[in-house]
Design a protein around this nucleic acid. Sequence first.
RNA 1: GCGCCCGUAGUUCAAUGGAUAGAGCGUCAGCCUCCGGAGCUGAAAAUAUGGGUUCGAAUCCCGUCGGGCGUACCA
Length: 593
Amino acid sequence: MLIRTLHETKCFAKMKSGFEECEMTIEQRLSAWMAAAFARAGVTEAAHGSIGVRRSQNEAFGDYQCEAALKVARALGQPPRVLAAAVQAQGTPPGCEPLAVAGPGFLNLRLSTAGLEEALEAQAADERLGTPPAGAGRTVVLDYSSPNVAKPMHIGHIRSTVIGNALDRLFRFLGYRVIADNHVGDWGTQFGLLILGYRQFLEPAALQADPIAELERLYRLSYERSRAEPEWLAAARAELVKLQAGDADNLALWRQFVAWSRAEFQRVYERLDVHFDLERGESYYNDKLPGVLERLAAAGVLEASEGAQIVRLEAEQLGVCIVRKSDGGYNYATTDLATVLNRIDEFNPTEIVYVTDERQQLHFNQIFAVARRLGVATTLRHVWFGLMRLPEGTFSTREGNVIKLERLLDEAESRALALVQAGSPELPAETQAAIARAVGLGAVKYADLSQNPQSLVTFTWEKALALEGNSAPYLQYAHARIRAVQDKYRERFPHEDPARFPLCVREPAERRLALRLLQFPDALLAAAAQTRPNLIADALYDLAQTYSSFYQTLPFLKAPAGIRESRLRLCDLTARVLKQGLNLLGIAAPDRI
RNA sequence: GCGCCCGUAGUUCAAUGGAUAGAGCGUCAGCCUCCGGAGCUGAAAAUAUGGGUUCGAAUCCCGUCGGGCGUACCA
C-alpha cells in the first residue's frame, strides 16, 4: 500500500518524538485519541477493527464524527448510545470542545476556538502546510503517459499524462522517492508496416512540414493495404524481422522515427510542464527478453501451446499469458515482465504503479500474476482510468477522428487570452500571453483531474475549456484576488506586518475557512491512498468556494486593527494552500490573471 | 458465452456503509457608493429497475434493463 494504514502512521509519528504535532493531520490526531478513548472504555482496535473519526458532512454535527460506537455495539451486546456515553466519559481531546453523543450513537467533535487557532498557527508556520511525510523512506516507480512512436499525441493521451503527473507530484510532496518513467511504445509490429509504407508512399515535402503527421499517414496507408493484400502483410513482417535482427537500413530508419516522435512528445511535455526521470522505451528491454523466458522456465511455469510459449493463469481466472509468439517473436507481456524485473533490480522500489486506460486491466493482472510466480514481492498496482471518447464514439486513428493534443492546448490558450485581454487590458502583451498559457493549460488539466479517473469521459470542447464554475481558472482567480488584497494592504499599511499578529477565528465564515484549510493535508493523503487526484481538486474547490464566501461576508482592509491582520493571514494561508494544491495538479497559480 | 467497469437534478460531474445525496453549466429571483462580478446569496430539480444484507445502502450481494471495455500470439 502506498499509504500506511492509520495504525502504522500513528507508530511512525510516535517514533519521531518531538515532531508529533507536525507529523500528523488533525484527523489522524483525533482518530488516535478516539482509538485510545475506546480502548480505555474496553474496545480495542485489535479486537474490533479500526476506530477513527472522519470529517462531518454537516456542520450541525460538529467538525468531525466517529461512528465506531454504532459499529461495535452489536458485538458487545450494548446499546450504541451507552457505549458512546462510556467513551464520552473518557475525557475531551486536546483542542476540542467536550464530546457530544448524538442520534443513534454518533460521537461528534468540535474543535475549540483555541484549538482551531493553534492548529492553524502550526499549519501557517509549516512550509508543507501540515502535510505528514507519509512516503519517507519509500520508493515508487511511476509508469505513465507512454505514447506510441509515429503517432501524434491526441486528447486520448492526456489522461495518462495528466493523472500520472499529478500522482508523480503528489508522491514527491509526500516524501516518496519517485522514479517517473515514460515507457514509450517504440518497438513492435507496427514498425514493419511503417518501414514499408515509408519506402513506398513517402512525400518528402509533407515529411518536412510535419514528420509525425506524415508517419501517421504512411502507417495508415500501409495498414489498409495490409488488410487487402496478404503479400503486403508478409513483406511487412519480413521488414520487422530484419529490424529485429539488426538490419542496418531498417535500424537507421527506426531510429529516425523514434527521434522525430520524441521531439514531438518533448514539445508537448514542455507545454504541459511534465518531466520524467527516465524515458525508456520498450526497445530498452529488447535484449533482456530471452532472460525472462529463462527465468520462467527455471520457475517451471513456462509451457508450450499451439506453437507459442505461455504461462497458464486459469487458476486466477486470467486465462493464459503468451510470452513468446509462435513465430518466435516476443510480445508486450514479455517486455512488461522484463521491465518489472529490471526496475526491481535497479531501483528496489516499494512499489511500481502503472497509469493506463481500463483496456489494459487484463494485461496487467496477467503480468502481476506471472511476476508473483517468479517470486516478485514488490507491490504492483495498475491505476486505470476510463476511456476518453467523443460524443459520436471512440477515437480511431484509422477513422481520423482524433483531436490532437496540441490543438486542444492552442484552443485553450486562445480562449483564455481573449478573456485576459478583456479583463486586464493594461498588462503588457507578453504578460497576458503568459497568463493565458497558465489559465488555458490549467483549464484543460483541471477538467480531467477534477473527476474520478475511473469514469468514462466524453470529450466536449465546452467541458475541456470551462473557465468558470468548478474550473482551474476559478481557483486561479481566487488565488490572484488574494494576492491583490495583499498588495493593497501593503500599500495602505506599509509599516505593518500581519505575521506579528495572532490568527483569530471568531466569525462563522472564518471558522469555516479555517477548517477547510486544516483539512487540506487529509485530502492529500486520501488522494495518494486512492490514487485519485480529483480528491485534491475537490478540496481546493471547496476551499475556494468557502474563501469566496468569506471574502464577500467580511471586510479585510476596513476591519479593526488586529482583526484586519488576522484576516490577511487567513488570506495568505488560503493562497498558499491553493497554490500548493494547484501545483500538485500541475497547474500554475499566477499572482494576476 | 465469460470477465472488468458504469447507470445520481434538463445536462456534466461529486459523495472513505452513516445523520437532511453535494457542486458546475443551464433555468428563475436577488447582489457592484466597499478589498478584482472569471465572483456572491437564494429557488426549482436526481440515486435506471426489482429483491436482499445491515441499526443505517447511491455505495455491499443477487436478478432485470441500458451503456463502455476486454477476452491466445497488436500494444
